[in-house]
Amino acid sequence: MRSAAVVGTGLIGTSIALALRGRGVTTYLIDTNPEAARIAADLGAGIAGRPRVPVDLAVLAVPPQHVAAALKEHQSQDLAHDFTDAASVKELPQRQAARAGCDLTRFVGGHPMGGREQSGPLAAKDDLFQGRPWVLTPSPETRVQAVERARRLAELCGARPVVMAHAEHDRAVALTSHAPHLVSSLLAARLLHGEQTQLGLAGQGLQDVTRLAAGSAELWTDILGSNAVAVADVLAEFALDLHQVVDALRGLGTVREPEQRRAHTELLSTALVRGIQGRARIPARSTTPGPNMSTAFAAAPRGA
């Protein structure tokens, strides 16, 4: 891939552009806010403005609800031969793009699994996706060349391409990203009710658990709303676990009968042990890109 365009020069778009420029790809930067594109260009992420001829691949680094409109606009303007996106929800944008009459043969959904709680081009890093999974969600209509270009994009950014169906991806990120963000936000919101003397005792544990809550409320309202059912399913099960723990704690605070106290203690201990077991299942972050995944595209399910 020799040329690319990045539409949306926030954290993700600028990080992608920085990685591409570092690998010698001529990269153009487009944003509805010209100042954001200029800042990204000043950081060395590419050339602010549209190319004179179509580039090999355009990356739509915009929120989920804007993917279809951006795809329609830039396909009509012949910005690129093929298109991908970087939104963290895949099923809804795909349906919206189909309804909008976009050329789905030249589009493959994408989601680089990397980010930070900061936003904007100044928070971008050229190694943000190093060793991270980069999900690709080709539809039955997607042509092979579009998938190959999106795969190459992921590799140039140091990521590991992974093919998934749209719905499968959305269920996965509901569990691993979207629900955790909302839980972090809800916990952080409880601090609004704390006294300053209480907050003065906060340590690194609280910082770690609430780090995600610092993310953009506007962006995350879009993300969570675009994957609402899958996130609600995860949170409903989480709420059941939470209610059990609340009941156990209430019991330990009020019950004196030894047998009942043992039952409540066992419930509490089980919840903590399951947390340890669950955390142990998180794969260690790789520092190097994975093997070439080109053979996986032929074998992976292609349905939307």
Score class of each variant (00 low, 15 high):
R2G: 14
R2M: 06
S3N: 06
S3I: 03
I12G: 01
I16M: 06
L18W: 00
L20R: 00
R21G: 09
G22Q: 05
R23Y: 05
G24P: 03
G24D: 04
V25G: 01
Y28Q: 03
Y28H: 09
Y28W: 08
N33M: 06
N33E: 08
N33T: 06
R38M: 11
G46Q: 00
I47P: 06
A48N: 00
G49E: 07
R50F: 10
P54K: 05
D56R: 09
D56S: 12
H66Y: 13
A69M: 08
A69E: 15
E73K: 13
H74M: 09
S76H: 11
S76V: 13
D78S: 15
H81K: 15
F83V: 02
T84P: 04
D85I: 00
V89G: 09
P93K: 03
Q94C: 09
R95W: 10
Q96D: 10
R99N: 12
G109S: 07
H111T: 03
G114Y: 02
G115M: 02
R116L: 14
Q118V: 10
G120Y: 05
P121S: 05
A124Y: 00
K125T: 11
D126C: 14
D127N: 09
L128T: 00
L128F: 02
F129W: 04
G131E: 05
P133Y: 05
V135S: 09
L136K: 02
T142N: 02
R143A: 07
V144Q: 15
Q145S: 15
A150I: 05
R152I: 12
A154Q: 06
A159V: 01
V162W: 01
V163M: 07
A165Y: 13
A167D: 15
A167S: 14
A167R: 15
D170Y: 00
A174C: 03
L175N: 09
A179H: 02
L182G: 00
S185Y: 11
A188D: 03
L192H: 15
L199M: 11
L199C: 08
L199I: 06
L201D: 12
A202D: 07
G203D: 07
G205T: 08
G205A: 06
T210S: 07
L219D: 05
W220C: 03
W220K: 04
I223S: 08
L224V: 07
A228P: 10
V229G: 12
A230Y: 10
V231Y: 05
A232G: 09
A232D: 14
V234K: 01
V234R: 03
V234G: 01
A236N: 13
E237Q: 14
E237D: 14
A239C: 06
Q244M: 14
Q244E: 15
D247R: 14
A248I: 04
A248H: 01
V255C: 14
P258E: 05
E259F: 12
E259V: 14
R261E: 07
E266W: 14
L267K: 07
L267M: 12
S269D: 10
R274C: 09
I276S: 08
G278K: 02
T288E: 13
N292D: 15
N292T: 05
T295K: 13
A298N: 13
